[in-house]
Design a protein around this nucleic acid. Structure first.
Lengths: 141, 141
DNA sequence: GTAGACCTTGACGCCGACGTCAACGCCAGC
DNA sequence: GCTGGCGTTGACGTCGGCGTCAAGGTCTAC
């Protein structure tokens, strides 16, 4: 299989494959004419890479999984190093989610405060509109 | 106030301030010798920028807030354009958090599956250890 | 033989928010 | 006058994961 076919079957591009090879992540045999030659195993590796990438893993973080498959193990995560990456990544995800939730709460607080301040100004001009915006008001204007 | 002092008081660097000026975000008056000259108002603007940056806002997203302050409004979020940015950002945050939570669940699933597969292999060699790992096992090894 | 569809390497571009360095100007204190 | 610590502009580097040329080689079909 040549690079174009592999790229297409994996839903990626030839440029990405060349990049992976440059990183030593997905080495390729060479045909007599210098063309890269891939096998079905490489498709497997590539799918593993793409899956992890969709999870937000960096390419270097996929390396243990790829090496695990290359070593002949049944799954990319059959090796301790891969499990370690899972653990690290889960911790990162938890931290990231917690941070984002905290930020969300703060931004929502600022937003509500700003809206209330605006409505109080408006209340001075007209009569008193009932102030029942306890939570975030959505898609106004 | 010269650039170094402002940077120090705002907890940032001179390079960042020059960058903001380049973007037209934080323009500076010039002293006779060509030095940038800032006032207390600029410190206010700068703090607004930094606060929003800490929330994960891009510099362009801070612009409405800065312009709002520059226009003489009491707060950076006293203007409709700023509220609009808040709304967009809240939506982005919600989407991002949901995506991360989904990813977290998938990674945790993969991790648990891989761990069970490993333990099943180990169970063949020794006796049957009680398999009670319903949830994620943490910090093993 | 020639068009065109594939392949090769190499190199620069991109995004954001600066870091870092170079080479120079300005000013205060000694 | 000279040193040291500010300031100035300009330009290139960083990080990741490629996109996008450019200039050529290779193979197939007509």
């Amino acid at each position: 299989m040549r690079i174009g076919e592999l790229a297409q079957r994996a839903g990626t591009t030839t440029r990405a494959l060349r990049y992976y090879e440059q990183l030593g992540l997905l080495p390729a045999r060479r045909a007599g004419n210098g063309y890269r030659a891939y096998g079905e195993d490489d498709l497997r590796l590539l799918r593993q890479i793409r899956t992890l990438q969709d999870f937000g893993f960096g390419l270097e973080e996929t390396r243990p999984f790829v090496e695990c498959l290359q070593a002949g193990h049944p799954e990319g995560d059959s090796c301790p190093a891969s499990l370690e990456v899972y653990r690290r990544k889960l911790a990162e995800l938890d931290e990231c989610i917690a941070r984002l939730q905290d930020v969300r709460a703060q931004v929502a607080g600022q937003f509500d405060r700003a809206v209330r301040a605006r409505d109080e100004l408006a209340a001075g001009a007209s009569a008193q509109p009932p102030q029942c915006e306890l939570a975030t008001e959505w898609a106004k204007e």
